[in-house]
Every structure is written in C-alpha cells, then in structure tokens.
Simulated assay, not measured.
Amino acid sequence: MELLECTLAVDDLDSFVTDLGELGDRYGTTIQAFDARYVADRRHLERAVAFADRAIERGENVARDRAVEILLYAAGRRQIDRALEMGVDDGKQDAVVLVDAENGDRDAEQDALEAVKELEAARERTPTLEGVDEDRLCAFFEITDAEREATDATLGDLVGERVALLEVEK
C-alpha cells in the first residue's frame, strides 16, 4: 500500500473519481482518496484494506467496488452514504490518496502513485497525517471522553478498534 499526502484541488468530483478509477484499472490497483481530517494514521488505512480484502474473500462485502469497501471499513460504517463523509469533495482540501495492488505488486503501486501525482488536482504535496484533528475524529468515530480516559490507547488505536468492530457488527 502506498499513500500520497497532498492538498487536492478538485473542480469536478465525478471527473476526479473517474480519473482515479481509470488509473486504478490501467495499473491493476485500487485507488481511494480520503479527506485527511478523518484519517487517524497510516495504520488506520492498512487495517481498512486488510478487513475489506477479508470481507471480499469471504463474499461478505457490502460494496461491489474494492475502493468503496475500503472506504466503508476506514469509516467504520456499513452505509455507503455515511462513509462518503470521509471521502473527498469539490474544492481544495487536505487528502490522503491510497494506492493498493490487491496482488501486492509494488511496481504497479509505484506506477499508479506516480500517475496520481501527475493529476492536476493532486499537484500540491502536503504532509496531511502529521496533525490530527482529535475532536473531529472523536466525533466521527463516536469516541467519548470517558472512553479515552479509561485507556492508555492512542486515538489511532481507538479508531482502529472502530474499523475492527465493523467486522463484528455485521
């Protein structure tokens, strides 16, 4: 799995999503863009990919598209419309673009990543995973103050727990 941290400038969301899908098809990868404000850390997305792949292998996936299934797990939600809040939108925003070859082909991932970097919308590189909006993450993933006080787990660990709980709650 490769990640591109950037500031996206999306003029037309449908065209941008189509471009990502076409690049994914061309390179045999899955490409999904996330609003960086909803991503706790790299491990958060790694877990989402692993759980989505397991659901697909078992025939338990909700979405037909692997990128959407990854989004569902990353958001910790089974409803696509609610998970889409974690995706990108029109306008300028900090983002994390995930590129993953299901078969582990690192060369394909690198080639696809380079192609994503060439998209007009993704030209500005920005470290987007360094600063986490804890209040936004807690609200989105329904992590309470009491829960945080009861454990020494990091916020990333608690978000990862929500990703894993989606598997249990099916």
Score class of each variant (00 low, 15 high):
59 G>S: 03
97 V>T: 03
92 K>A: 08
62 V>G: 06
79 Q>N: 13
71 L>Y: 03
57 E>F: 07
88 V>I: 14
90 D>T: 13
85 E>I: 13
76 G>P: 13
57 E>H: 10
69 E>N: 11
93 Q>G: 12
97 V>S: 05
73 Y>S: 08
83 A>C: 04
74 A>V: 09
56 I>M: 13
88 V>E: 01
64 R>M: 08
87 G>S: 15
79 Q>G: 06
71 L>C: 01
63 A>T: 05
64 R>Y: 07
86 M>Y: 03
72 L>Y: 01
67 A>V: 02
64 R>N: 12
77 R>Y: 07
102 E>R: 11
79 Q>Y: 06
98 L>H: 03
91 G>R: 04
57 E>W: 03
84 L>V: 08
58 R>P: 00
91 G>P: 01
80 I>L: 15
60 E>Y: 01
103 N>I: 06
59 G>M: 10
96 V>N: 03
62 V>W: 03
89 D>C: 03
98 L>Q: 10
74 A>G: 15
101 A>T: 06
104 G>N: 09
75 A>C: 06
56 I>K: 10
67 A>G: 15
74 A>R: 09
55 A>E: 09
91 G>Y: 01
87 G>V: 07
71 L>N: 02
73 Y>E: 14
57 E>T: 11
89 D>S: 13
101 A>E: 08
80 I>K: 14
88 V>N: 01
92 K>Q: 09
93 Q>N: 09
90 D>N: 14
70 I>W: 07
99 V>S: 05
98 L>D: 10
80 I>N: 07
78 R>F: 09
69 E>F: 05
91 G>A: 06
71 L>V: 07
76 G>L: 09
97 V>G: 05
98 L>C: 08
83 A>K: 03
88 V>H: 00
76 G>R: 09
105 D>M: 04
89 D>G: 12
93 Q>C: 05
104 G>F: 08
69 E>T: 10
96 V>H: 04
104 G>K: 09
65 D>P: 03
87 G>N: 04
